[in-house]
Design a protein around this nucleic acid. Structure first.
Length: 583
RNA sequence: GCGCCCGUAGCUCAGCUGGAUAGAGCGUUGGCCUCCGGAGCCAAAGGUCAGAGGUUCGAAUCCUCUCGGGCGCGCCA
C-alpha cells in the first residue's frame, strides 16, 4: 500500500516537474511516513515543505498543487493539507479492512516480499574460534546474525548463512597442545600446566577421549616434553613458553599423531558448537574452513594479487599491505618476519573468495571490540579493485548478564565463563533469542536472567506468546460452544470499534516494518512491534467479547483476531521464537 | 593521545533516518474477574532529550566543542 501511494505521489511530482514548477530530481523525494497521530491520516508526506524553497512557493500552496496533480485511487478516501504544509492521506475503510483478508490468505507469507529479487547475500556470523564452547557473548551475535539473515530472506534476498572456522591459527595449536598435556596427566604424569594453555574442563574431556581410545599410544615421558623449554610466567614469557611446547609436541608426536590430536580437539569442539547453535535455532548453509582456504593456496593468491597491484612492500623482513592508502590509519603486516601469513592475510583471502563466489552483498556480524578491524578489511577490498561498500560490517555490543540485581562475573581465563548452553538451559531458547535482539545491536545489552525466566507480564516474551496462545484458546472455546469459524459469514464492515481500527492498522504496518528492519539490519524493531501488537490485542480482548451470538460480527472479530495471531506467529518466527498454542 | 559506539521519565529502552503535542515497559499510586485463560486490562503522577553553540520554515535526530560511560588502537586471533 505504501509503495502504491508513493508511486501516486511520484506521479504527481513528475507532472509538476513537467509543468516547470519543480526541479528535475523532485520525484525522488516521494516518500511517505506513518504519522504518530491518527488524526494526521494513515500516511503523510513532507515533500511540499522540503521542496517549497527550491520551487519558490509557499509550502501550503505547493501542497495544494501537488494534491491537485495527484491521480485518483480507489483506496484513498481523501487527502488533506495540514499544518505548515503536510499532505495527509486517509485510506478508505474498505482498503483498511482488506488487510485482514490478506493476512488470512497469505498466512506465513504475509510480510514477505520480493524486494531483494533473489539477489545473493552472504551473512557471516558468530565465527568464534573453535577453541572452546560458545559463551553468552557469542549468543548475541548468533541471535542477531540469525535474525538479520531471516529478515533478508523474508524480503526476497537469497541468503547464504556461513560460519568461518578459524581452524588454522596458533590458538588451535595451543588447544591441541593443551589437550595433549592433559592427556599426559591422565596417563599418570605430573606436570606444570602452562598458564597460557586452555584451562576449561572441556579440555580434560577431549584428553579423556584420547586416553580412552588410544591408551598410552600418545604418551611421552614428561621430562622429554619440558626439557629445554623456556620458563613460564611469572619468571619467564608465557607466550615463548607455550610456543616452545607446541613445537615440542609436534616434534615428539610427529606430524600424523599431532594432527590426530589437533583434529580430535577441533572436531569435538566444532560438533559441540554446531549442536549448541542448532538447539538455539541457528542453522548454517556452510562451515567455511580457514585451513581449507590456506591449503587451496587462496591466501597466497590474495597476497600475490595485492603485490601485482603494487599495494605491498617489504619492511623489516615482513611484507606490509599499504592499507593506509585506502583509508586505514596505518599499514598492516600480511606476511610475518618468520614467513607466516597473518590472520589478516587469510581474512583478505576469505573476503576475496566471498566476492568471487558471487555474493552481491556481504554481511559480517562482529563483536564491537573488533571495530578497529573494519577499515583494514574494507581497504583490502578496495585495493583488490572491489567496491568496499558491498561489505556491511554489523557490530554487536556486549551483553552483560544480571542475576538477583548484580552483574554475573565472567572470566574466560579461569575457564569459568557462562556458556551459551548454560544460558539456554537456564532461561530457555525463546527468552534467550528474544532478549538478545530486543535492543539495538550497537546498544549495550543488559540481560536480566530473572526477568527472562519469569512467567509474568513483565516478561515481553511471555506477554507476546500469551497473546498468540490466547487466540488459540478462543478458538477452542468456539468449538466448545458448538460453533465453527466461518470466514465467509464474516461482515468486516461491522468492525467499527476504535480498538479494531487500531489493530487493523497495526496489521497493515507489518510488511513495511519487516522491510525496514531488514534493510537497516534492525531486528529490535520487530521485537518492539510484536510487543505493541500483543498489547493492542490484550486490550481488545478485555474490552470486547469475540464469541457473540451475532454471526456476522462474531466471524468478523474472529477473522481479525486470527490475523493478529498469524502476524505474531510470523514475527516471532523471524526472531526464532516459538508461537505456542498453549502455555 | 587518536578512533568507534553510547548518554531520552526513578530503572531498562523506543523514537519510522529532519517534521505536527516526546513514547513504551518496569517501578510508584488508584481502579477492573458470576463474562472467550487475571501470564490480562484501565487510569494518574513522572522530561531543560548530558551541556553549550551552530545549520533552517522546523533538531532528541545533522555539524562543532565540552562533560560523562563503554570498547578498540600487535609481525594475537
Amino acid at each position: 500500500m505504501k509503495a502504491t501511494l508513493e508511486s501516486l505521489l511520484a506521479e504527481a511530482l513528475k507532472r509538476l516537474q513537467e509543468a516547470g514548477v519543480l526541479p528535475p530530481d523532485a520525484a525522488q523525494r516521494a516518500r511517505l511516513t506513518r504519522p504518530r497521530d491518527k488524526a494526521h491520516g494513515d500516511y503523510a508526506t513532507n515533500v511540499a515543505l522540503a521542496l517549497a524553497k527550491t520551487a519558490g512557493t509557499e509550502p501550503r500552496e505547493l501542497a495544494r498543487r501537488i494534491v491537485e496533480a495527484l491521480p485518483a485511487h480507489p483506496a484513498v478516501a481523501r487527502v488533506e493539507i495540514a499544518g505548515p504544509g503536510f499532505i495527509n492521506f486517509f485510506l478508505d475503510e474498505g482498503a483498511h479492512r482488506s488487510v485482514i483478508l490478506r493476512v488470512l490468505e497469505q498466512g506465513e507469507a504475509y510480510g514477505r516480499s520480493q524486494l531483494g529479487a533473489g539477489r545473493p547475500v552472504q551473512v557471516e556470523f558468530v565465527s568464534a574460534n573453535p577453541t572452546g564452547p560458545l559463551h553468552v557473548g557469542h549468543g548475541r551475535g548468533a541471535a542477531y546474525g540469525a535474525t538479520v539473515a531471516n529478515l533478508l530472506e523474508a524480503v526476497g534476498y537469497r541468503v547464504h548463512r556461513e560460519y568461518y572456522v578459524n581452524d588454522a591459527g596458533r590458538q588451535m595449536d595451543i588447544l591441541a597442545t593443551s589437550v595433549w598435556l592433559r592427556y599426559l596427566e591422565l596417563a599418570g604424569q605430573d606436570l606444570e600446566f602452562p598458564s597460557n594453555g586452555y584451562q576449561g574442563d572441556y579440555v580434560w574431556d577431549i584428553a579423556a577421549t584420547l586416553h580412552r581410545e588410544h591408551g598410552e599410544d600418545y604418551a611421552v615421558p614428561v621430562e622429554r616434553v619440558f626439557a629445554g623449554i623456556p620458563p613460564d610466567a611469572p619468571e619467564g614469557d608465557k607466550e615463548a613458553h607455550i610456543d616452545a611446547l607446541i613445537a615440542r609436541a609436534q616434534a615428539l608426536l610427529g606430524d600424523i599423531r599431532y594432527r590426530y590430536v589437533f583434529d580430535l580437539a577441533l572436531t569435538t569442539i566444532l560438533d559441540d558448537i554446531r549442536d549448541d547453535l542448532e538447539k538455539f535455532g541457528v542453522v548454517y548453509d556452510e562451515w567455511y574452513s580457514e585451513r581449507g582456504l590456506v591449503e587451496r593456496g587462496l591466501v597466497m593468491q590474495a597476497v600475490e594479487r595485492l603485490r601485482r597491484a603494487g599495494h605491498v612492500y617489504e619492511h623489516g623482513n615482513a611484507l606490509w599491505f599499504r592499507s593506509s592508502a585506502f583509508g586505514d590509519e596505518k599499514d598492516r603486516v600480511v606476511v610475518r618476519e618468520n614467513g607466516q601469513f597473518t590472520y589478516f592475510a587469510s581474512d583478505i583471502a576469505y573476503h576475496m573468495d566471498k566476492i568471487e563466489r558471487g555474493y552481491e552483498r556481504l554481511v559480517d556480524v562482529w563483536g564491537a571490540d573488533h571495530h578497529g578491524y573494519v577499515p583494514r578489511v574494507k581497504a583490502a577490498l578496495a585495493a583488490l579493485g572491489e567496491d568496499p561498500e558491498r561489505l556491511d560490517v554489523l557490530l554487536v555490543q556486549f551483553a552483560v548478564l544480571w542475576r538477583g540485581g548484580r552483574k554475573v562475573q565472567m572470566s574466560t581465563r579461569s575457564g569459568e565463563f557462562v556458556t551459551l548452553r548454560q544460558l539456554r538451559k537456564e532461561v530457555g531458547r525463546d527468552a534467550a533469542r528474544f532478549f538478545y535482539v530486543m535492543r539495538k545491536a550497537e546498544q549495550h545489552l543488559d540481560f536480566d536472567l530473572d526477568l527472562a525466566k519469569s512467567r509474568t507480564a513483565d516478561n515481553p516474551v511471555y506477554y507476546i506468546q500469551y497473546a498468540h496462545a490466547r487466540v488459540a484458546s478462543v478458538m477452542h472455546q468456539l468449538q466448545a460452544r458448538g460453533w465453527r469459524f466461518e470466514p465467509d459469514r464474516a461482515d468486516l464492515s461491522r468492525l467499527t470499534e476504535p480498538h479494531e481500527a487500531d489493530l487493523t492498522a497495526a496489521l497493515g504496518r507489518y510488511p513495511e516494518l519487516v522491510e525496514s528492519a531488514a534493510l537497516t539490519h534492525e531486528p529490535h524493531l520487530i521485537a518492539h512491534y510484536l510487543r505493541e501488537l500483543a498489547h493492542q490485542f490484550h486490550t481488545y480482548y478485555n474490552a470486547h467479547p469475540f464469541l457473540v451470538d451475532d454471526e456476522a460480527l462474531r466471524n468478523a472479530r474472529l477473522s481479525l483476531v486470527l490475523a493478529v495471531q498469524q502476524v505474531i506467529r510470523n514475527g516471532l518466527g523471524l526472531l526464532g521464537v516459538c508461537a505456542p498454542e498453549r502455555m
